[in-house]
Simulated scan of single mutants.
Amino acid sequence: MKTKELFIIIYNIVVVLSVMYATQPLQPLLAKEFEVSIVKSSQFTAVIMLFLAIAPIIYGYILERVNAKRVLLTASLILAVTNTFLSFSTSYEMFLTIRTIEAIVIPAILTASMSILANIDKVNVKLNMSIYVASTVFGGLVGRVFSGYIATYFSWQMVFLSLSFASLIGLFLITRLNYDAQAHLTKATIKDISQILKDKRFFVIYLLMFSIFFVFAGVLNILPFRLKELDPSTSESQIGLLYLGYGVGIVVSLFIHKIIKFFDKEMKTILFGIIIFLISTALYIVENPLIIFLNVFLFCLGMFTVHTVSTRMANSLKESQKSLTSGMYLSFYYIGGTVGSIIPPMFYQLYGWNNTIYLCMFLLCVIFIFVYTNRKIFKAYN
């Protein structure tokens, strides 16, 4: 394994995911700063998820081949510039426009990073992919926790200036990257997509992850507002600490083979994950901030168990077209996150916290029944 290359890619993935999720604990603060609603402030994260959903298809048509190192260099430079401009934003429109530019380059960085990880060490591809997942989770954790801390003790502007500095370090490291191969992007045709969806196993997994990430993104997007509702004195630093439970995803992604071995079958593991996710979603009804904090760990355990096992299954059900099936998986996943970043905040604003949780619980009950009734079409279960 090329340790130097691995470190450089991991560092840049962590920076990119930090950029993506840095706005989440700051949403109440940014909503107040720009005098906008909960729904509008949630769009700072939703816009990036939207582009992560559609990028695998769009980029495949624009570019069939692209130099992965050059993509990382260009995109990291753009991130450094955009985050600097974010810190000087004076309006909601300006902030959202700059976040949209970031949303365009972030999928390119992640696609190039995944391509490099898959090719720098052909022997340890599966291990490298597990490291990729763990890196994205760690980046989401770092972005949320440190943005809350920096905003509380310095300012929200310093959050984006520090991310700009981190991107510049990444830019320097990429110049030291010993890799010059090209990443091959997939062109998805309507015929290819419809053929994959005709396989009911893929349809079940894609719909499952749409629903799971809808609830996950929705709840975590409005949780900062809920904490402020319970205790208006809650600081951004305290909100950031709420996301420490996200670290459970790192453990799950690295030890998923042992979790599956414990349950014996993949589908049994997924059903267990949905139950844990449903129980933890119901626990958000409790009004104690400490219980809410602890519940995030359980919430993330359920979500990442389902996500990690589903990813493995989506990539192993079909020998051919692996890049397309995994790309479609990510598209459904992030479309769920995009819609989840918009609908639950709207519901919360109109009908309150408890009714929003009931909505999420209802969706999870429906998807559990759907997956359970279709469990036997998966060989991994039988």
Rank of each mutant, 00 (worst) to 15 (best):
Lys4Cys: 09
Ile10Gln: 12
Ile10Phe: 15
Ile13Tyr: 13
Val14Met: 03
Val16Cys: 14
Pro28Asn: 04
Leu29Met: 12
Phe34Asp: 14
Ser41Val: 10
Phe44Gln: 03
Thr45Lys: 10
Arg65Lys: 07
Leu77Tyr: 09
Phe88Ser: 14
Thr90Trp: 11
Thr97His: 00
Thr97Phe: 11
Met114Asp: 09
Ser115Arg: 10
Ile116Asp: 08
Val125Tyr: 12
Ser135Thr: 02
Val145Glu: 07
Gly148Met: 02
Trp156Gly: 14
Ser164Gly: 14
Ala166Gly: 09
Leu168Phe: 07
Thr175Ser: 07
Gln182Val: 05
Thr186Pro: 13
Ala188Cys: 03
Asp199Pro: 01
Arg201Leu: 11
Phe202Gly: 03
Tyr206Ser: 10
Asn221Ala: 15
Leu223Cys: 06
Arg226Phe: 09
Leu227His: 08
Pro232Lys: 13
Thr234Gln: 11
Ser235Arg: 06
Leu241Phe: 14
Leu241Lys: 09
Leu244Glu: 08
Val251Phe: 07
Phe262Asn: 06
Thr269Met: 00
Gly273Arg: 06
Ile275Gln: 13
Ile275Met: 15
Leu283Val: 07
Tyr284Glu: 11
Ile291Tyr: 03
Ile292Asp: 12
Phe293Cys: 00
Asn295Ile: 08
His307Pro: 00
Arg312Gly: 13
Ala314Val: 06
Leu324Val: 07
Met328Ile: 00
Ile335Pro: 14
Thr338Ala: 09
Val339Lys: 02
Gly340Lys: 00
Pro345Ser: 00
Tyr351Cys: 03
Asn355Asp: 08
Met361Glu: 15
Phe362Leu: 15
Leu364Met: 06
Cys365Ser: 12
Val366Asn: 08
Phe370Ala: 08
Arg375Gly: 14
